[in-house]
Amino acid sequence: MRPIMKITGAMDLIGQQFGSILMTILISLAWLMIVLMKRVPNPVVVLVYAGLSYALFAIILSGLVSPILDGKLQGPLTNPLSMISVFATNAIWGFLVGRIAKALRHK
């Protein structure tokens, strides 16, 4: 969702910093609600994979759309270390939300 908002310019309308924080919170809440409502046996593993999938989607979308919008390839595909960072950040994000889900489920 965040990459789409950035590409369409919606992120610029609400402000880059606020928009990023808001989208992170909304996506985290959606992930949390889904694994709790579906009673996923291992939410940590599921949400780590959700984070990795999100990272892959963002990288691919950036690679496809940046040449169209900017005339040249930009984003994580231009720097392998950046790609590692995107995957690591999103895996950690999934792990943290998964731990929250696991803690809430046991209450």
Rank of each mutant, 00 (worst) to 15 (best):
A30H: 09
A30Q: 07
A30G: 13
W31L: 09
W31T: 03
W31A: 11
L32H: 04
M33I: 15
M33P: 00
I34L: 12
V35N: 01
V35S: 01
V35T: 07
L36A: 08
L36E: 00
L36Q: 09
M37N: 11
M37V: 13
M37E: 06
K38R: 15
V40N: 08
V40S: 07
P41I: 04
N42D: 13
P43E: 03
P43W: 05
V45G: 04
L47A: 07
V48C: 04
V48W: 01
Y49R: 09
A50I: 06
G51A: 03
G51V: 04
L52G: 00
L52I: 12
L52D: 00
S53E: 07
S53H: 09
Y54K: 12
A55I: 12
A55D: 14
A55H: 10
L56N: 00
L56Y: 04
F57K: 07
A58W: 06
A58Q: 07
A58P: 03
I60W: 04
L61Q: 02
L64Y: 08
L64C: 07
V65G: 05
S66Y: 08
S66E: 08
P67S: 07
P67K: 10
P67E: 02
I68Y: 05
I68W: 04
L69W: 09
D70T: 14
G71F: 08
G71H: 05
K72S: 12
L73F: 08
L73A: 08
L73P: 08
L73R: 10
Q74R: 14
G75T: 05
G75V: 02
G75Y: 00
P76A: 15
P76Q: 14
L77K: 03
T78R: 02
T78I: 09
T78N: 06
T78Q: 09
N79P: 01
N79F: 11
P80H: 09
L81N: 13
S82P: 03
M83E: 10
I84D: 11
S85C: 13
S85E: 14
V86N: 07
V86P: 05
V86H: 10
F87M: 09
N90A: 08
A91S: 06
I92W: 00
W93P: 01
G94P: 01
G94N: 01
F95M: 11
L96I: 15
V97R: 01
G98C: 05
G98T: 03
R99T: 12
I100N: 01
A101T: 00
